[in-house]
Design a protein around this nucleic acid. Structure first.
Lengths: 231, 231
DNA sequence: CGGTACTTTGACCAAATTCAATCACTGTGG
DNA sequence: CCACAGTGATTGAATTTGGTCAAAGTACCG
């Protein structure tokens, strides 16, 4: 179903997630979101792994982290690609049920598990996972890719703007539930449709966000991966 | 991608979700999970719809309710099939982003949005949606069906036991991200593999739960929907 | 009984996967 | 500065899984 995949490269130094005191704020501030000290991890390094005792949720200050699950036969499902401000690492049990791996150098703080109002972050997580499930269950490959690009763009993104993508084709594929070749072909398809153009190795320039949006939403019903066109 | 689908039949009577007092407990009990009065809805009736102002989460006392999203072109993704004890209807914004429809006569209570410890239910919901996303992103049709059956069985289910399925093929299909014919064919495949046998219209007898589990987990690597065998 | 709705089956089709090159960018060493 | 590995991305061809379309089959209900 899927083959060689982008290794969670265990990089040189491996600071264990730095658990400072039990989570209680040391200096007063009784109801501020209680945290430990921020720490950094390098690209490819794991923040936590499935099966490990849960070390409370984490707030991502800077960088990008992906959260993923592995199943037999080289199959992976990337459940989240989180950027600054996002909270990750919620778990229902005593142990993590996913791996979390840095995509770029990341700064993180561990949140106190008891800290009030993780509920906002949890509700956001639920909404996000519903979107993902809908995408995986009911969207075509090109719709998935368009949806993904729009997510990476965030709001207030303008046509002509360069979109940085600190993520490999394999990881995109494992996020969108397709194989790497399908991602490639659909990048080409979007290029042909005039939605974007390449910009260097990993990046891309968005030419028509509105078109992208129509494709993502399942209007613009082309199969799109045509087999050699003139233009 | 998907065609005629099981209509959220708007049934005769349609009691609006009965909002009793603001959620405050009337009789003391200061910290009991504050609720309004239970109410009932009939099969096919909607509990809430996407776009409606959020009416707080609901606890399902009895019956079955499905939560689903609709996208252009007759496409649906059923995100949840909830039974007694489950809490549904979480939403990040002020409005629901899903529809909820009863599969069987259901008894429900509205929970006070502020009531402590929805967080347990939220964490469970997150875990559930991660499983679903993994299934939709990375499992084959037969693996999806096996996984679904195991879920319906719950724990402590024994070989030879009859499994009641108060849900149509179309709804199963829209839950598993395949079409109705694929569900049919894979029921046949599971029958041929000796995992189950039919029992009346909707129900099924589980013959080999262990096999089902192996299939669901992606061991037992058969494509399985063979095109006419002798046995 | 006959009608309606849902399910199953079959034949065919298409989107996506698999397998296998080829290509393009990066970094290295000559 | 250029040849050349090495890695990841792209392209092509063949295959497969699941989808589409259409025709039975089957249960349920009046």
């Amino acid at each position: 179903m899927n083959s060689s995949f982008a290794h969670p490269t265990s990089l040189p130094f491996a600071p264990p997630p730095v658990v400072v005191d039990g989570g209680r704020a040391r200096k007063g501030k009784p109801f501020a979101p209680l945290t430990a000290d921020p720490f950094r991890i390098a690209p490819g390094q794991r923040l936590f792994a499935a099966g490990e005792p849960a070390a409370g949720p984490f707030r991502l200050i800077e960088g990008a982290i992906m959260v993923l699950r592995t199943l037999p036969g080289d199959r992976r499902q990337i459940l989240d690609i989180a950027g600054p401000g996002r909270t990750i690492g919620f778990t229902a049990g005593r142990r993590h049920d996913c791996d979390a791996v840095a995509l770029s150098p990341a700064t993180i703080v561990r949140l106190d598990a008891g800290a009030m109002d993780q509920s906002v972050a949890m509700l956001a997580e639920i909404a996000r996972l519903r979107d993902l499930a809908t995408l995986l269950g009911r969207k075509t490959a090109i719709e998935r890719l368009a949806t993904f690009l729009l997510q990476m763009m965030g709001d207030d993104f303008e046509d002509g703007q360069r979109l940085e993508m600190p993520i490999s084709r394999q990881d995109i594929a494992d996020h969108l539930g397709v194989v790497i070749e399908t991602v490639s072909r659909n990048f080409v398809a979007l290029k042909r449709l005039g939605a974007l153009k390449r910009a260097g190795r990993e990046d891309v320039v968005i030419l028509d966000a509105a078109l992208l949006r129509r494709i993502a939403d399942g209007h613009e019903t082309h199969s799109a991966v045509a087999t050699s066109e003139s233009a």
